[in-house]
Design a protein around this nucleic acid. Structure first.
Lengths: 221, 221
DNA sequence: CTGGATCCCTCACGATACTG
DNA sequence: CAGTATCGTGAGGGATCCAG
């Protein structure tokens, strides 16, 4: 049995072989947001060795998840993007991220937030039921990171970058999770300085309902 | 940054830290089917070192995914079972397995099938739309492995073990995937000896519609 | 016999340096 | 910018050993 394989004829085992290697899931996460160059990926994945990134990209390309594309002149640079097969992971990864978010406490000092991770996090926590009848554009700012979410028709589109015409712009601190988990109310978040707003301040309550982190289920069996 | 962590405050990164280690996903897969003892897990995961199994179980227990339980007398043995949080992975893993199954070709000589992997595979490939109005019990035999699937009300329950009163019992060879992927018709499967039936032979066509592996999407962007 | 712990060896990962 | 080369370290593979 070759290393890194499981020797089982099983769809889940195959999926684990393709994406179970270190950094693999996070590479796909970042490519779900947008195609990227090698260096962009490196920047979004602090700590990844270049050799590992190169190896993963080759493996993912071999598995039909990622494809390498040379941009037309004058750029001639190389971008990595998901194939159709790779894009089918969006739903799975969004659900997986929603599950994992329940295990998030408050951020530790050494934990960072990246723009791409935050985009996927907002897609993960989005609740279509809570968004029914809501039509609004949010801008979210966390330090250097800026992203926008357009909610309409019970769907959401989340992208990196500012939204100049946002209905509500939220400048948030690291405690944003507590608001999304319902551990503090929008009013408390404002009072404690967890968020600072500009725009239609009433929309903060909608935001907290639409982008929601569930609690971990109670302990036993 | 500790080994095995990613240093990112992100639900998907946390999920990858919990389940991304080698064998982790397959341990949860087997526990989704039923609680198991250490040795049962070992048998269902050929090639796993006892040290790795013990380490993973401790980590999964620490993450609140698995719990260790001592059976009452007279057995007094120990079983590992999923917590409520762990059971929430069923939906994600089933979808992940459905995605990975598209990458399965025909089984290689060194690839085995286990009963638990087959149970999850049937849950993965189940199509509720195709099962509307169908009420039937299937028994599936692959060598030593026997499992049963009860289809009713657009839902399915798959378990290990025989179904004596099955409407259709299918004894299948390693080519079963070709039937489920629509690469051969039920008629061809019968003629080529891919399956042998007992019971209501007409139900084989239903089986092939209800438990279905999609093709990989076409190559480019 | 189950439920592990301990050993050694290998290989993949992490860090850094370097090249087309 | 887009990687390859090198090297030390730690986790996994495999076998063995031990406690209840």
């Amino acid at each position: 049995m070759a290393t890194r394989t499981y020797g089982q004829y099983c769809g889940l085992a195959r999926a684990a072989e393709i994406l179970g290697e270190r950094w693999g899931l996070l590479i796909v996460r970042d490519l779900l947001v947008a195609p990227k160059r090698f260096t962009d990926l490196q920047r979004g994945l602090p700590g990844i060795p270049t050799s590992v990134l190169a190896a993963r990209l080759k493996e993912l390309e071999g598995a039909g998840v990622v494809q390498r594309r040379v941009l037309p002149r004058p750029e001639r640079s190389i971008v990595y993007e998901l194939t159709a097969y790779g894009r089918e992971l969006e739903d799975v990864l969004v659900r997986f991220g929603r599950w994992g978010a329940k295990s998030l406490g408050d951020p530790r000092a050494d934990e960072i937030i990246t723009a791409d991770s935050m985009v996927v996090a907002l897609r993960s926590t989005f609740r279509s039921e809570a968004a029914q009848g809501v039509r609004a554009t949010f801008e979210l700012r966390l330090g250097e990171i800026v992203l926008n979410a357009r909610v309409a028709g019970g769907e959401v589109e989340v992208r990196t970058g500012p939204a100049p015409a946002a209905d509500l712009s939220i400048e948030a601190g690291p405690q944003l999770r507590a608001l999304m988990a319902g551990e503090i109310t929008p009013r408390e978040a404002l009072r404690k300085g967890v968020v600072r707003l500009s725009g239609d301040r009433d929309l903060l309550a909608s935001f907290a309902k639409i982008f929601r982190i569930d609690p971990m289920p109670v302990a036993p069996s």
